[in-house]
Simulated scan of single mutants.
Amino acid sequence: MKEKRGIIITGAIVGIIAVFLVKFGNPKNMGFCIACFIRDIAGSLGFHRAEVVQYLRPEIIGLVLGSFLMAFSNKEFKAKGGSSPFTRFILGIIVMIGALIFLGCPLRMVLRIAGGDLNAIFGLVGFVLGIGLGILFLNKGFNLKRSYKLPQAEGYVFPIVNMFLFILLIISPAFLFFSKNGPGSMVAPIGIALIAGLIVGVLAQRTRLCMVGGIRDLILFKDTYLISGFIAILLFSFIFNIALGYFNLGFSQQPVAHSDALWNLLGMLVCGWGSVLLGGCPLRQLILAGEGNTDSAIAVMGMFVGAGIAHNFGLASSPKGPTPNGQISVIVCIIAIFLIAIFNSEISIKKQKGDVSVG
């Protein structure tokens, strides 16, 4: 599966599944969106009260459990963590805010382009620029330090939490919130959504599928392995969008999207830059968390909190465009990422130790 053929097949399956999830009820161009679905889960649990985006998305649960089952069966499940956990938590918040300014994670960016949403092209430009900035600091020795082996029980916690969330979804207690209209009310049947997540989780774990990693590796090493999956998702979701009549080329009247080019670009710049520093896109963080990586689990929890912050403080965009608070938050996030990148780069660490003269 580590051959390029494997990741191309994975990308094709992900693209096809994403389109069919729309057919079964998910919002258009949102068969899969890691940021949006984590945001919906946060809303369902009451961490924000945006009534149109509240649902315990089984796709996320399936991704984590699929990764866990595959890693466990192949003896690749390893509990580890301790690599700058609080910094990763903050980066998770930042990545989520950037994604919700754009209205989608890197995976949804690809699906939006495949559905004809030309606004997402500006997101792609920002995404590449953000990855480029991340690479600049990787070349300057950026490092969140090593992780450490942990007791296996520690790695089981995140998959168990997701199993508990699925039980909550099935029994639907009164304290959960479920959207009655808007994107949160547009859902595929629970069984179909869970199976879709499981399939994608299994395949993504085997092939290391990552939106950020594809562009990063192409720039750094001229390695086309990961980006092949990226391209396959785009191509096959494009083909099936046309086949099912979902393709709508243009800037206006796009589902759950806005047409402010600058803030689409800057939102994904923040998302791309933060994801490089984390070591993978939101999808990849979920997969790694399923494998027992508690650092990635902490990053995902940062995204969860970031979703609550974005909606409770009016940072998230809407189809009408970005909010003034959201625009300010993007600038704050860019400054925060820059400071994190600087203070965790090799040259900064040497200066702090007095190994490099200042001035």
Rank of each mutant, 00 (worst) to 15 (best):
M109T: 13
V22R: 05
G31Q: 09
N119C: 13
A114V: 01
N29F: 07
F86L: 14
A18F: 01
D117L: 06
L107A: 05
P85H: 04
M109A: 01
P27K: 12
I60R: 01
G116R: 08
I13Y: 05
V64T: 09
H48W: 02
I121P: 06
S73Y: 15
F77L: 05
A50M: 02
G115T: 11
G116F: 09
I13V: 13
G104H: 00
D40Y: 06
I13W: 07
G115L: 12
L65R: 06
I121M: 07
I60D: 04
I101G: 13
G81T: 06
L56K: 10
I41F: 12
A42D: 09
D117N: 05
D40V: 12
L65K: 10
L100I: 08
Q54D: 03
S84H: 03
I17D: 13
V19Q: 07
D117G: 05
M70A: 15
G15I: 13
T87Y: 10
V95G: 12
G92R: 01
G66C: 06
M109D: 08
A50F: 15
G66D: 01
L107W: 06
I121A: 00
N74V: 10
N29M: 13
L111K: 10
F47P: 00
L69W: 15
F24R: 04
R108W: 03
E59R: 02
I90M: 08
S73R: 14
I97S: 06
F72V: 09
A18H: 08
I97Y: 07
R112Y: 09
V110K: 04
T87M: 07
S44W: 06
C105L: 10
D117S: 02
L111D: 12
A71I: 03
M70W: 15
I34P: 01
G98N: 04
I41W: 02
V95N: 08
V64G: 12
I17S: 11
F89Y: 08
V52N: 11
N29A: 15
M96I: 01
E59D: 08
V19W: 09
